[in-house]
């Protein structure tokens, strides 16, 4: 597994790189802004680029713009955006059109090598990843009575994992369930939320996110 890291904060850039290297991930390059990142991606062709959302010059959403650019120039490279923002808006901007091989985690996840490595792994395999805290926030959002109230606790757990971008197999592993049981849960959840049967994994994630954000 080869990654490149783009972050303008040296401590975080270097620390993340060291942590990843010790966990057996090859760090093919380090960048401190979007331009440098794009150059390294072009030469190194990594599996995944880990990108801070705020980089010079404006320190707002350069990471999202870089992800967009990487999609058009190097469609095979996955992107994990690290962000300070909990608002689902930024995550939605990253995922809404092309969720394949894209991930959005809160910045502090870099200190949890397990989570970080898992995310990179999944992105490299083409899955999409959304930070559990953001998903929890969306699910806990105050709503008028609706289909969400009809879900059982287990179904809510499964729903959260769907929103985090997990595949059925991933959900089965996380909850220690058989894939068949997970499939049955997923079917019921989608029916209860009125989202229909969406066999495609990425469209399923987007449908659930749209439902939760509405």
């Amino acid at each position: 597994m080869r990654v490149v890291i783009a972050d303008d904060a040296m401590l975080i850039r270097e620390g993340t790189a060291r942590l990843l290297e010790e966990a057996g991930v090859e760090v093919a390059g380090k960048a401190c802004d979007a331009q440098q990142l794009l150059r390294i991606v072009a030469t190194e062709h990594p599996d995944v680029a880990i990108v801070d959302i705020k980089m010079p010059p404006t320190h707002t959403d350069e990471g999202l713009a870089a992800a967009e650019q990487i999609r058009s120039t190097h469609p095979g490279v996955g992107v994990l955006v690290l962000s300070q923002y909990l608002d689902s808006r930024y995550a939605t901007r990253l995922l809404e059109h092309h969720p394949e091989a894209r991930g959005y985690l809160l910045k502090e996840r870099v200190s949890d090598i397990g989570v970080l490595k898992d995310a990179i792994q999944r992105i490299a395999e083409g899955e999409c990843v959304l930070d559990p805290t953001i998903v929890t926030r969306l699910i806990k959002r105050q709503r008028h009575r609706g289909p969400l109230d009809d879900l059982t606790d287990r179904e809510r757990e499964v729903l959260a994992l769907i929103a985090e971008g997990r595949s059925n197999l991933g959900i089965a592993q996380a909850l220690v369930l058989s894939p068949k049981t997970v499939e049955a849960h997923v079917g019921r959840i989608m029916a209860k939320l009125g989202l229909g049967d969406t066999p495609d994994y990425h469209r399923r994630v987007l449908a659930v996110l749209a439902f939760l954000r509405a």
């Binding site: 975080i12 705020k54 320190h59 502090e108 870099v110």
Partner: peptide
């Protein structure tokens, strides 16, 4: 807001990261 995000928060993240470097 920017100072908190780019300054204090960034430093705490770096600290959390440093803590994990064995």
């Amino acid at each position: 807001e920017r100072d908190l995000h780019d300054g204090a928060q960034q430093r705490l993240v770096a600290l959390a990261l440093a803590l994990r470097l064995p």
